[in-house]
Design a protein around this nucleic acid. Structure first.
Length: 929
RNA sequence: GCCCGGAUGGUGGAAUGGUAGACACGAAGGACUUAAAAUCCUUUGGCCUCACGGCUGUGCGGGUUCAAGUCCCGCUUCGGGUACCA
């Protein structure tokens, strides 16, 4: 029997499916292990060969854990709501539900061919009402809770209402959008509407006017992580700032917990660093400055309270509410002109063009330590959204303030001994303070601490921690998303009763905004409650559905609750989470936040949802090029026709050429298939070629895998040609999991040959040659060396080196012509996580009737690995000259003696005096002369 | 600008401070075959040498060490993240 992979793979995939081999249930007798892939957004393009990389890795680990006796949860689903489906719907009129279902079917078909061990019985789709029921439900809970800053957790909003009814805001520890101050009497005197408006200031899901990223091309608002450098990440459309009334999630309340939790996650430093930067904790002081001519003061945030004596001006953000207060009548016109000019510039322009701009307000503030008057300016380098939207400027020690001071000719006072601020500011936090009153003579670090304490003590301000992390804007003016379980009464939002969930996404005639400019849901008929109150027209963003999906997998069919207590207490958290780095700031922050919120409510038992995170690298494309000769008459010109002429790679320097991308699927080992090329594009039908050695050699380059580069490789084609096991092994063999690397189909023959060689240990010329002989010591050593290496490598996610180890093992066993059952059976089980189809086949060939998935992972027996001798490399001054085989148990002194007495040593020394001899037992001998 | 990763043959990559280039791909040569495919064998970092063997070699320049791809310092360069965050 030959290695017929297509037959074998189809057979066992059917067997696994029919026997529900991958069905998972709570089993209190077994330890659990939860392996999760970041679920895909099913795009119309289908999977390319880069997508399964992480899935294969997680599949290997899942199968490995199962073979070790764990009850493994390994589910898969689809992040099915999203912009591309809706954009496509607008263009074609096809309902996104239809195209999404079609794309999912295609994804599933592709995934199934690779032989993953997913429990498809637990599949979820975020656009499924049974699923988004719980997304809507969580939103209601967030609306009904506030964040207590003292307890650092979510608390029912009724508790807050009770508190303010009795005490107003006194002793209220609630994270709010603004710091409000009112008494119980004032509260009780307010109308229902006014009270509701105030509560929005505290709710974890809240509605507020805020500056948002508005993307006109997409017709929607975007979250900060959906925007990069002033354009949308999806589509690259310009984004502008706009004030709109939007739903937001109070993620910022959880900033400290999100930061603290990082230490409990096992992941790379770079990922933690990215999250840390995104959260952006900075410790400093909030200081109050009085206006010189009014009984008013305003706060600034600084991390450098020590530089207070160097403040020579103040700067307000153009959007700051203080602008109005501070602008003097004389300056009003100039200020207005500046604000107008700033408003016109998009964020993109502001980033691209860093010129210094600003305007004087006409007002002065008083320095709380020196009493000097300092001018108040307005400039767009100060952001309204960070800190208080106002800063104290210390040009000597801040580069931005320095640039501003130089431009407007404002004074610069150096505060650190010996610093030179004639050309640039001195930003480093080092040196000895001067010109700073009570801080003089201290180091900067001491001064920062002393100044903070001083500020607090004198009542000038208070110590404060600021975070960069913003609340997540949660409204999207789109159709294809979860409807909010919200209706409006007297313009105030109210939650639907939980019994009305799920609130089903309604049908609309077009997926476009209404004539009035309302979101698409404005087109839905009867989009109101039974009592006639209008429902929310926005839908939720993409990250809504992906924030708690890992919890739903634990109990996907439950219609009473998101996840039952039993299921949650068994599966608890994700032990291993594999996915791309692109989610480091978005999904991973939101889902951690969402989980912490549910944890506060006592609904989940772990505060951090993911124990270990691995980011697989990107699979890049490897493009091929042909070189078209420019303006060159063809070799054999046809009458009245110009024929394109292409020159082979190594001859191209003799001509002027234009490189042209060519489909990698018609190139093998960089040799162009000329016939296929002529058929590939009608333009090249009559193309002529200048060959080298009778071949056309293509150039190549590593680029992003994309249609336009013609370098997309489809996993289906690979499975078709080589089989799923080969694909799985090859994806792992390409290189370290976490590293980005180009896909090059050329190397795939190597792993395919390996599988055939393994097969030939069982079948020689189609005849089963398996025997029951006892394995030799040598064979046992080969086997156990491999068990040890592969086990170690799997534990360390070094799958590329485990594939090498398998190759070495099979090469060595082939050389020994070993077809012994006792040797091959453990090897087959060892290989199961990597190549499950061939392993299942061979396991049955070995005489088993059950599935190899439930076999026991072999354990290395060190006794078989003991060597009786060691080949010592003998080196002179660190250069190895020869090796010397000595007994393994020989002691250090004897090894030294043996090495020195050896004739090769005497020859090498050639009479030189030995200065020193280093012997590392079992390793090496180094003789220093 | 700041932060985090990389840089090793023609290519992908391997190497707890201890014989650099495992394992593959490709290439060259050979066996089998009418032929091709498949399979198998040999060689394959560079330079010198008929050979034995030698010299050199992990982006660059220093250093630590008996010994450095690996550790330290200073650069070059390529990726990724992030940004007027006070």
């Amino acid at each position: 029997m030959e290695y017929n992979f297509s037959e074998i793979e189809a057979k066992w995939q059917t067997y696994w499916k029919e026997n529900q081999i991958y069905k998972t249930e709570v089993d209190l007798q077994k330890p659990k292990y939860y392996v999760l892939d970041m679920f895909p957004y099913p795009s119309g393009a289908g999977l390319h060969v880069g997508h399964p990389l992480g899935y294969i890795a997680s599949d290997i680990y899942s199968r490995y854990k199962r073979l070790q006796g764990f009850n493994v949860l390994h589910p898969m689903g689809y992040d099915a709501y999203g912009l591309p489906a809706e954009q496509y719907a607008i263009q074609t009129g096809q309902h996104p539900a239809v195209t999404t279902a079609r794309n999912i079917a295609r994804y599933r078909e592709q995934l199934d061919k690779i032989g993953f061990c997913y429990d498809w019985g637990r599949e979820i789709r975020t656009c499924d009402p049974d699923y988004y029921h719980w997304t809507q439900w969580a939103f209601i809970q967030m609306f009904n809770h506030y964040f207590d800053t003292k307890l650092q957790k979510a608390i029912p909003i009724e508790n807050l209402v009770n508190h303010i009814e009795k005490n107003g805001t006194t002793e209220l520890h609630a994270h709010g959008t603004e710091e409000l101050c009112f008494s119980a009497t004032e509260w009780n005197a307010k109308t229902e509407k006014e009270q509701q408006e105030i509560l929005l200031n505290y709710r974890i899901a809240y509605l507020a006017d805020m500056k948002v990223n508005w993307c006109p091309a997409l017709g929607t608002v975007l979250a900060n992580d959906e925007v990069s450098e002033g354009v949308s990440i999806r589509g690259g459309h310009p984004v502008e700032q706009k004030v709109m009334r939007q739903w937001s999630l109070r993620v910022s309340a959880y900033a400290q917990r999100l930061l603290d939790g990082l230490s409990r996650i096992d992941s790379t430093d770079s990922l933690k660093e990215t999250q840390k930067n995104w959260i952006g904790r900075s410790e400093g002081a909030e200081m109050s400055f009085k206006l010189s001519d009014k009984e008013l003061s305003f706060d600034v945030f600084t991390t450098r309270a020590d530089t207070i004596y160097g403040v020579t001006f103040m700067v307000l953000a153009p959007e700051s509410e203080l602008v109005k207060t501070c602008t003097s009548p004389e300056q009003a016109a100039e200020v207005q002109a500046y604000l107008d000019a700033t408003k016109k510039r998009t964020e993109r322009e502001r980033i691209a063009d860093r010129r210094v701009t600003g305007v004087f307000t006409g007002s002065y503030a008083i320095n709380p330590v020196g009493g000097t008057e300092i001018p108040i300016w307005i400039s767009d380098y100060v952001l309204a959204g960070y800190g208080t939207g106002a800063i104290m400027a210390v040009p000597a020690h801040d580069s931005r303030d320095y640039a501003f001071a130089k431009h407007f000719n404002l004074p610069i006072i150096p505060l650190i001994e010996g610093c030179d601020v004639s050309e640039e500011s001195f930003d480093a936090k080092e040196g000895i303070m001067m010109n700073s009153g009570f801080l003089n003579g201290l180091t900067v670090k001491e001064a920062i601490e002393k100044a903070k304490a001083y500020v607090e003590e004198k009542g000038i301000g208070r110590i404060k921690v600021n975070f960069r992390l913003r609340d997540a804007i949660f409204s999207r003016q789109r159709y294809w998303g979860e409807p909010f379980p919200v209706y409006y009464k007297d313009d105030m939002p109210y939650m639907l009763d939980e019994s009305k969930l799920p609130l089903i996404l309604p049908e609309v005639d077009k997926f476009l905004p209404t004539e009035k400019g309302e979101p698409p849901l404005g087109r839905a008929k009867n989009w109101q409650t039974e009592d006639g109150f209008p429902l929310e027209l926005c839908t939720m963003p993409g990250f809504a559905g992906s924030s708690a999906y890992y919890l739903r997998y634990m109990d996907p069919k439950n219609d009473k609750t998101l996840v039952s207590k039993e299921a949650n207490e068994y599966w608890r958290d994700v032990d291993l989470y594999i996915g791309g780095t692109e989610h480091a700031t978005g999904h991973l922050v939101y889902s951690r936040f969402w989980n912490k919120f549910l944890f506060d409510l006592g609904l989940v038992c772990e505060d951090e949802p993911f124990k270990k995170l691995i980011n697989q690298g990107m699979i890049q494309g490897r493009s091929n090029f042909v070189y078209r000769i420019k303006d060159k008459a063809p070799l054999t010109p046809l009458k009245g026709e110009t024929v394109p002429v292409f020159v082979s790679l190594n001859l191209k320097d003799r001509y002027e050429t234009t490189p042209i991308h060519v489909d990698v699927n018609i190139v093998t080992n960089d040799h162009l298939d000329i016939e296929k090329f002529r058929n590939w594009n009608p333009e090249y039908k009559n193309a002529e070629f200048i060959l080298e050695d009778g071949k056309y050699i293509c150039g190549w380059a590593v680029e992003k895998m994309s249609k336009s580069m013609f370098n997309v490789v489809n996993p289906d084609d690979i499975v078709e040609k080589y089989g799923a096991d080969t694909l799985r092994l090859y994806e792992m063999f390409l290189g370290p999991l976490e590293q980005s690397k180009p896909w090059d189909t050329n190397g795939i023959d190597g792993v395919h040959r390996f599988l055939k060689r393994l097969w030939s240990l069982f079948y020689k010329d189609g005849i089963l040659v398996l025997n029951n002989e006892q394995p030799s010591a040598e064979e046992l050593k080969i086997l156990h060396k491999t068990i040890k290496k592969v086990t170690f490598d799997i534990e360390n996610f070094s799958f590329n080196t485990s594939v090498s180890a398998f190759m070495i093992c099979v090469n060595e066993l082939s050389a020994l012509k070993c077809s012994k059952k006792a040797t091959l059976e453990p090897l087959v089980i060892l290989l199961t996580p990597f190549a499950p189809h061939i392993a299942e086949e061979l396991y049955h060939v070995l005489g088993h009737t059950g599935t190899v998935c439930d076999a026991t992972f072999p354990v290395c027996n060190e006794d078989f690995l003991v060597e009786s001798t060691v080949k010592y490399p003998i080196s002179f001054n660190g250069k190895v000259r020869f090796t010397l085989e000595l007994p393994a148990d020989m002691n250090k002194a004897d090894v030294e003696k043996a090495a020195l007495e050896n004739e090769n040593t005497i020859k090498q020394l050639n009479g030189a005096t030995i200065k020193k001899v280093i012997v590392v037992p079992g390793k090496i001998v180094n003789i220093v002369v």
